[in-house]
């Protein structure tokens, strides 16, 4: 569950078509060619582990969300009561807004930076490109905790950020204590941590575009921006949408950065959905457990709904074949 899904292949994987064909072709496999026993033994460890630590907790979450858990009096069935509480809670909706705002601050910026960087790296020589790829990826392996601690220091009154501002005779600004500035300030390490992988994925996609397209466009007199707009972007559409969806689902679930940097403050300005749920779970009031479980399930629904809409948009419009 701790694994980042970012390396997971998208829906358009190269082999998807082949495997689907293979499956259909093999439906009529004669029984003696089947390997039921071996196959079950091979998938057993995975199936059992997922069952205990993913599937059961999910079912249990849904079940518990319909009960009021009280450690003193036992639990009572309350139906969908908690769903109403959560949906009527302004704090829950506020956290969703914070999560959406955080996603809006990070995801587009990350993708634009990554696209520019990837286009630039593509023009470099082999060795320079290898060097840049490593450089760009380096922040990605730094932990969110280290980045949080580091940026807390950068944002102190005497920190680097205020020193840079003072160069243009501005500031000092109280970054993490200003409700207006705190979330954008947290978005900066968020982008810094995430743009590396995005750049590498976009670079891989860029390298797949045949050079002849650009030559043709150049012959037709297209400049850098015209080529970007008419050749690169249309061909990258699927990758970009994939990056938007995965970027969004990761961004709206951000918890480590605000947990360490601000713990949701000032005045709840950085209380992202997961942080809100996490903190209600640690709350001692008797309703807290069911309440936070319900909130986490509703967040799942919100994320799922938004991703489904975006994926539908991708599917409805076939890619231009490169």
């Amino acid at each position: 569950m701790a694994l980042t899904p970012t390396l997971a292949p998208g829906p358009q994987t190269a082999d998807a078509g082949r495997s689907a064909r293979g499956r259909r072709g093999r439906v009529k496999t004669p029984p003696h060619r089947r390997d039921n026993r071996t196959a079950y033994l091979m998938i057993a460890p995975m199936v059992i582990l997922l069952g205990i630590f993913v599937m059961w907790p999910l079912v249990y979450s849904v079940y518990l969300s319909t009960y009021e858990i009280n450690f003193y009096r036992g639990s009572t069935f309350v139906g969908l009561q908690f769903y109403r509480y959560v949906l009527e809670s302004p704090d829950f909706w506020h956290s969703i807004v914070v999560g959406l705002y955080y996603s809006a601050l990070t995801v587009p910026a990350m993708i634009i930076i990554a696209l520019l960087l990837a286009s630039f790296i593509k023009t470099l020589s082999r060795r320079a490109a290898a060097f840049m790829k490593t450089t760009v990826y380096l922040p990605t392996v730094v932990s969110t905790v280290v980045a949080s601690v580091l940026f807390v220091l950068i944002y102190q009154d005497e920190g680097v950020a205020n020193w840079l501002l003072s160069l243009i005779s501005f500031g000092p600004v109280n970054w993490l204590n200003d409700p207006q500035l705190a979330l954008p300030a947290i978005a900066v390490p968020g982008i810094w941590l995430g743009f590396g992988l995005t750049t590498l994925i976009l670079l891989a996609a860029l390298l797949d575009i045949p050079e002849s397209y650009y030559e043709q466009a150049a012959l037709d007199g297209a400049g850098f921006f015209a080529r970007l707009w008419y050749v690169t972007l249309p061909l990258l559409k699927n990758v970009l949408l994939y990056l938007f969806v995965t970027g969004f689902t990761l961004a709206i679930q951000m918890i480590d950065l605000p947990l360490i940097m601000t713990n949701g403050g000032p005045s709840e300005a950085t209380n992202t959905p997961n942080l809100y749920i996490f903190n209600t779970f640690r709350d001692v009031t008797p309703y807290a457990t069911s309440y936070s479980l319900t909130a986490s399930l509703l967040l799942f629904v919100v994320i799922g709904a938004i991703s489904a809409v975006v994926f539908r948009l991708v599917r409805s419009d076939k890619a231009i074949d490169g």
Partner: peptide, 20 residues
């Protein structure tokens, strides 16, 4: 069954995993 967990957000099962 094996691929679906990719799409389950960590928070939706974090609390019950903790109980488990």
């Amino acid at each position: 069954y094996c691929v679906m967990p990719m799409f389950i957000p960590m928070m939706a099962i974090l609390l019950t995993s903790f109980m488990v």
